[in-house]
């Protein structure tokens, strides 16, 4: 069962240093799309990425850093991770959300 959700991705840094935000609401998606996105959330190792990014040294010059908020009617979690720790199991979610970034 896919819950109602809101995903908010903030991206900072990069060469440009331009902070951008993407928001994705399940209500704006078809049931199939919402199910696919939620599956990406459930399989993404968000806590591990946050843990791996803590402390100095996780960042290389001009790489991105991310803050992701996952909100459902019952819960809200926030994760912060560096681009350098994004693996193949987290990348699909990030790329899906980055499509909605705008100036």
């Amino acid at each position: 069962m896919t819950p109602e959700f809101t995903l908010t991705l903030d991206r900072h840094g990069g060469f440009a240093g331009v902070s951008m935000r993407a928001e994705l609401h399940s209500a704006d998606l078809t049931p199939e799309e919402a199910q696919q996105v939620w599956a990406l959330v459930e399989t993404a190792p968000l806590k591990a990425a946050t843990d791996a990014s803590s402390g100095r040294g996780a960042q290389r010059p001009d790489s991105f850093s991310y803050r992701l908020s996952v909100e459902t009617p019952d819960d809200r979690h926030e994760y912060a991770f560096a681009e350098s720790v994004i693996g193949s199991d987290l990348q699909p979610l990030v790329q899906r959300l980055e499509r909605h970034l705008a100036f």
Binding site: G14, F15, A16, R60, P61, D62, S63, F64, Q95, L101, A102, F103
Partner: peptide
């Protein structure tokens, strides 16, 4: 990457994306 809006130094080489919101880096 695909439409990667960035360039960076990774300690060994300089990496350039093709850009999506920005032009080719």
């Amino acid at each position: 990457g695909v439409g990667y809006d960035n360039a960076f130094w990774n300690g060994q080489q300089m990496v350039f994306g093709d850009g999506r919101l920005f032009k080719r880096l």
